[in-house]
Nucleic acid binder design. Structure first.
Lengths: 126, 126
DNA sequence: CCGTATCCACCCAGATACTG
DNA sequence: CAGTATCTGGGTGGATACGG
């Protein structure tokens, strides 16, 4: 790394930066569309339009926006085929696949506790 | 269950309802504040004000809002002590603790891939 | 201390239209 | 087909105030 002379002060600064970066990553990832896209991609590679069909209810805009975010964070790889009509494929990278494992767990949880939640809501009064 | 005579049609209807319910639960849970609150609660039981301090940056409003949601879905239990000043304790229920296990994994992921993400961003150009 | 209600500024997401 | 830009309404969350 660069410029690491005054260890005490810069260590604290590093911690703060790391913290804020961690929170930023968390915010990026902990949102419904991102997680649904990751789940949709799974092991496959899909084109933009296939993803659009796969992730029910997502708009063109939200899809591109989240795909950019995922590319930026190195979660997905974007491969452009210079054909006509154009074709763009998206695939999860290794970090993306690791993240998907946790998303799978979340989906599993939803399935497992579906009944609990339904009845909890009834007790609560919808 | 009630009113289940015409099996074919109501089965389809059930699937649709189950699906929309699943998506609703997913949306409830897949949001940054909910996940951070769950993580903050952990095994402990905390009062409202302690949670407020623990979950950095959350507003009074967002905290109550998410806690209500979690109570409604049976993820957390709310215990009011009729003292003065009032005191309200929150604890994760069993479903909530199960969910926390997946959140822990997500946090672990963030920590593990921190470096990957940082460098991916540099490659991308911030 | 905890909860709710009101107000309002801001952001976000959808719609639309246009490029390559 | 995929991506970008612009516009706009409605939702969202912060601030504030007040009640239990």
């Amino acid at each position: 790394m660069v410029t690491k002379e005054l260890s005490d002060l810069s260590d604290e600064a590093d911690l703060r930066r790391a913290d804020s970066l961690a929170r930023e990553i968390f915010s990026d990832v902990a949102n419904k569309w991102a997680l649904l896209i990751i789940e949709a991609l799974g092991e496959r590679t899909l084109r933009f339009s296939e993803l659009r069909d796969e992730v029910e209810g997502i708009s063109h805009k939200m899809l591109t926006q989240n795909l950019r975010m995922m590319e930026r964070n190195g979660l997905a790889e974007r491969k452009v085929h210079p054909t006509v009509p154009p074709r763009v494929d998206y695939t999860l990278t290794e970090p993306g696949r690791a993240l998907r494992a946790t998303v799978d767990l979340l989906c599993g949880w939803t399935h497992e506790y579906f009944g609990h939640i339904e009845s909890a809501r009834r007790r609560f009064g919808t």
